[in-house]
Design a binder for these strands. Sequence first.
DNA 1: TAGATATGCACACCTTCACAT
DNA 2: AATGTGAAGGTGTGCATATCT
Lengths: 334, 334
Amino acid sequence: MSDTPSISPKSLTMQDVADAAGVSPMTVSNCFRYPERVREKTRMAVMKIAADLGYVPNLSAGTLAAGSSRVIGAVLPSMRNSSFYNYNSGLRQAAAARGLELITMIAETPEEELSAVQTLLGLRVAGVALVAGPHEPGLSQLLALAGVPVVESWAGEDAIGRGVCYDVGAASRALTRHLIAQGRRRIGFVEVTGGGGQRYAMRLPAFRQEMFAAGLSDSLVLTVRAADGFASGATILDSFLALEPNLDAILCPTDVVAAGALFECQRRGLAVPGDIAVAGWGDYDIGRQVSPMLTTVRPFSDEIGKGAIEVLTGDHEGSGAVATPFALQLRESA
Amino acid sequence: MSDTPSISPKSLTMQDVADAAGVSPMTVSNCFRYPERVREKTRMAVMKIAADLGYVPNLSAGTLAAGSSRVIGAVLPSMRNSSFYNYNSGLRQAAAARGLELITMIAETPEEELSAVQTLLGLRVAGVALVAGPHEPGLSQLLALAGVPVVESWAGEDAIGRGVCYDVGAASRALTRHLIAQGRRRIGFVEVTGGGGQRYAMRLPAFRQEMFAAGLSDSLVLTVRAADGFASGATILDSFLALEPNLDAILCPTDVVAAGALFECQRRGLAVPGDIAVAGWGDYDIGRQVSPMLTTVRPFSDEIGKGAIEVLTGDHEGSGAVATPFALQLRESA
DNA sequence: TAGATATGCACACCTTCACAT
DNA sequence: AATGTGAAGGTGTGCATATCT
């Protein structure tokens, strides 16, 4: 068979390190776990020997003995876009600042998510960070029974565990008001229902609210199952123009879609923002690279990650959902 | 609201499930671990009770007892671009197909990578999947001492553990030959030295080899520390044109850089591919969205992930680096 | 008798806690 | 006081054995 992956006969234990250093196993444990409990000199000697031997404490044994671990588990639906990537970075940095490690599992379907959570619970992680979206029915109860701290990012009051998110409705209202203040009247809004669309469920009611407040019709709503990629931006613009040839603004679900719509405008000879304002969402790189640059909503996703860790570690007083900041990023396109 | 993150006093153990089901703990263990060893009827009953109770086997205890786990750990330098994302997907799918779980840790610096590997070794994972790049000095020895299967993706013969990658040199030669065959003569090549540049170290020698074979000068090499984002594409094009106003092709390190160069060509009124051929690398989404669409190298990164899992599980005979496929993606820009 | 199915025991390695120096 | 130690678990698995049909 395979000659290579032959496991080292007997793995190194704390006892081995203790013997080599001439101290008790407990002292070795303290060196790793509570360095301040061991005199500097002893600690240095022990750590040196541990490093030379290539000893790495067995986290499984540690977790079993202590009944808890120093690892946080995150489950993400994807990492394709910069929001989730930044979210993960925020989680990682905030975790590191507290001496916790972050492990991430990608789960593209609710079933995969459930399975990932089971693995994480099996590992007895110190906390689980979820992202709002469609979940498997048993998920919530499973987590409740496990009694592990949970956060659901991009979720609000109805979250599993506690929600952490910026105020999507407020962002949507601000963006809508901005367009109205520019004199836009026939504003197209794209609603996404599939996949992660529910993370942005508050966008449409908020949009309608502002349109209504301004005495405007809100009938220009296009509902799609999914919208990703530049191509869907073009398709969406087509549909809107067929619906309303005098469209003067479009609110896209993401910057990528907005960029696609923008390209399509340019192909059709429609001036942006002259004829049509195009607004994106998410502050992706692409928004700064196209011309005109996209007006968008900046979610500070790393702050969502930071907030999530604060909740998991109990550093966040109160009990309601945690609100993180957002900003309207006004650029050229709207 | 929350009846809350108060840790459940005593966690559920196999014994609890066994008691409730009227079987021995060992039977419960077998139900989870080796379902085929338990009679269907018994197993169904046990699993039902386990599910009702919300029991999740303690992986820490299991790993400790068994001396090994069913979890593979991956450490990635980033997940910003689709290559690493696809790689991670490939790892995940191939792992799932073998009943293994994948946990991912992002490490943006060599120190973070070392720390991530220590966590993974502490978890006693069944295998470690690394990505080539600058590593901390002690990393290789640490892994060797741990005796855990290791793969280094995007690496060749000099890999930590075993390398898995497509033939970057061959891809570079193929792309260069393609340009030469088109009649391109003054070809600019961008070499990246910093960060992950070493994953593509074979590109330049391969380029030079083909240029030499065609009797062409290869002096148009621009060496940069880093190149990412559209902006660097513009900068790079500027530099090349200052060097050689009659430049007729440019080989960019990524599709994103190529797109930036393409945009800059258009700003300057240079026709692509008429005046200048622009080639990218990596087959990112953007390459299909710009006009003209980018000619590029398609790495099939998910295959790298699949190959990595095969190596880790010993499913790959032989001992040298594992070669995965690549393809020259000929489109409009070159 | 054999084959399938279930069980018991002895650890795996580290940490908490109380105690000793 | 500051530092180091010893004993007692914590939970599940490998293996060998027992039981059932």
